[in-house]
Structures are given as C-alpha cells and as structure tokens.
C-alpha cells in the first residue's frame, strides 16, 4: 500500500542546546524581517543626528568626550534602550502566545525552556545589533567631525566602554521585557510603565533607592569626564548630583546587578512560559 508520505528516516530529540540554536536561528530571521525594525533603526539614528548637530553648531564647546557620555546617559539609556527592548524583546515572546502559534513549538519534542531561550537570545541579538549599528554610526560621525580626537586612545576607549554599557543595558531590558511577554497579557503597557514610570521616577529619588533601577546602574557604568563646573555640562552634572544625592557605586556592583537582572528575568520568563496553557482558542 502506498503511504501518504515516505518515512523521513530516524528521528531523535535534539539536545537542549541544539533546540535552542534552531529556535534562535529561525526567530532571528523572523524578527529581522519585521517592518518595525526599520522604524527602530531610524529612531536609533537620533544620537547620530544630535552628534551631527553638535559638530555643525558647537564643535568647540562640546567635544566628543563630553557629548558621548551625555548621549549614552540621556539618550541611549533613558530612551533608546528601553524602546528597542520593548519593540523586539516583549513581542518575541508575547506574540506567539497571543497569536496561538506557540502550539507548533509545543507539539515538538523540545523542552519549553529551549523555546524561550531560543527566542529571547534571538531578540537580544537583534536588539544588540541595532544598538551596535547606531553606536558604530556615532563613531563614524566622530571620526569625520573630530578626526584628531576620535583616533585618540582615550576617546576610543570611552566609545568602546559606552558601547559595552549600552549593549549590557540592551540585554538586561530585553530579558526583562521578554519575561513581561511570557507572563503578562499586555506586556507593552507594563514595559512602558516600567521604563518611563518606575525607572524615570525612582532614579530621581535621593539616596540608595535609585539602585533599584537599571538606569542607575547603566548610568553608573558610563565613564563620566571629570566634572568641571566652569563648563555647562559639568555644572549641570554637579547640580544634579547635589540635588539627587547620586552616589556612584563600584562598577562591578552595577555589572553584577545588570547580569543578575538579566538572569533572573530569563529564569522567570522560562517558568512563566512553562506554566502557560494554550487555553485561548478553545
């Protein structure tokens, strides 16, 4: 008797690592094709435009070693990183749940943590890729606008450090919003409230309670030039530190805090997804 389909040969469940890699590879392609990525890419060009504006109108007053930390703290950390993670991290997990396409993965012999890890890793790669592109474009503008300074070891190191901090922040926010996507019905609303409610408010509360935010630790890691009260940014920074009693913590403490948040959020996301039931369309 003819079979409906031929036998595809022997099958054996994939290891968790391989299953994660297969899901990540497929999710990466899926996320990279979304139209919202183009809008996000354009949004991430804002620092480049700001740097261009500085180069055109105030090249002497605001040298790159001052502008770079300002961009990192007030543009990337406060706005762009949370927005990038919101647009990529949360939907990477929440959309298959909301649309019901999760069923295709759940009826395959893979563990649910491999599915979660694959999708969140892909989301982190896409988010970091976008931020890295933006940081590279910033460096190119610095190179073209301030060629002497841009090639100095100090500025290159500052740029490298800033890039690493923004990537670390991207990973932390993506992991956190991914967990929101696994556990909440409206993860975007929760992410907006977190990024622009909790983070924005708590970082302005004096004393150590500020340390309960990602923004604080990311800002803490940005290498800040010695504040010179004779120039405007230095004066503003001194005033802010005075007003908010913003005491820096050791860099390692911030790095550990960010890594712990990323790890805890990922574990929470895995557990939340494992507990999920496909009870919506029924």
């Amino acid at each position: 008797m003819n079979r409906v389909l031929n036998n595809p040969g022997p099958t054996a469940p994939l290891s968790d690592v391989l299953a994660t890699a297969v899901v990540a590879g497929a999710t990466w392609r899926e996320l990279a094709r979304r139209r919202r990525l183009l809008s996000l890419g354009l949004l991430l060009m804002i620092p480049v435009l700001m740097l261009l504006a500085v180069r055109i109108w105030a090249p002497q007053d605001a040298p790159p070693n001052v502008v770079l930390p300002l961009l990192a703290r007030y543009v990337y950390i406060m706005f762009l990183l949370p927005i990038t993670a919101m647009a990529v991290g949360a939907p990477a997990i929440s959309e298959p749940i909301a649309e019901g396409t999760l069923v295709y993965f759940w009826t395959r012999p893979i563990r649910r943590h491999a599915l979660y890890l694959g999708r969140i890793v892909a989301a982190a790669i896409v988010s970091c890729g976008l931020v890295l592109l933006s940081q590279t474009a910033v460096f190119m503008v610095m190179l073209a606008g301030w060629p002497d300074q841009a090639l100095s070891l100090d500025l290159m190191r500052l740029h490298a450090e800033t890039t690493v901090v923004t990537l670390l922040g991207t990973v932390a926010y993506t992991a956190l919003f991914g967990a929101f996507g696994a556990g909440l019905k409206k993860p975007m609303v929760a992410a907006i409230l977190f990024a622009f409610g909790w983070e924005a408010t708590v970082t302005k509360i004096p004393q150590r309670i500020q340390e309960w935010t990602l923004q604080f630790h990311l800002g803490n890691l940005v290498h800040w030039p010695e504040a010179d009260s004779r120039d405007v940014p230095g004066l503003i920074e001194n005033l802010l530190n005075l007003a908010l009693q913003r005491e820096p913590v050791p860099a390692w403490e911030s790095v550990v805090s960010l890594l712990v948040v990323s790890l805890v959020a990922t574990v929470a996301g895995v557990l939340l997804l494992r507990g999920r039931q496909l009870d919506k369309q029924g």
Binding site: P8, R29, E30, R34, R108
Partner: peptide, 16 residues
C-alpha cells in the same frame, strides 16, 4: 514572517 519552506524546515528539524 516565515516562508512556507522555512516554517516546515524549522519544525521538521525540531522534531528531531
């Protein structure tokens, strides 16, 4: 956002 081929390839691979 997947093509038909990609979708099937992924699921077949995940099936082992």
């Amino acid at each position: 956002w997947f093509t038909g081929r990609e979708f099937l390839s992924m699921l077949i691979r995940l099936a082992g």
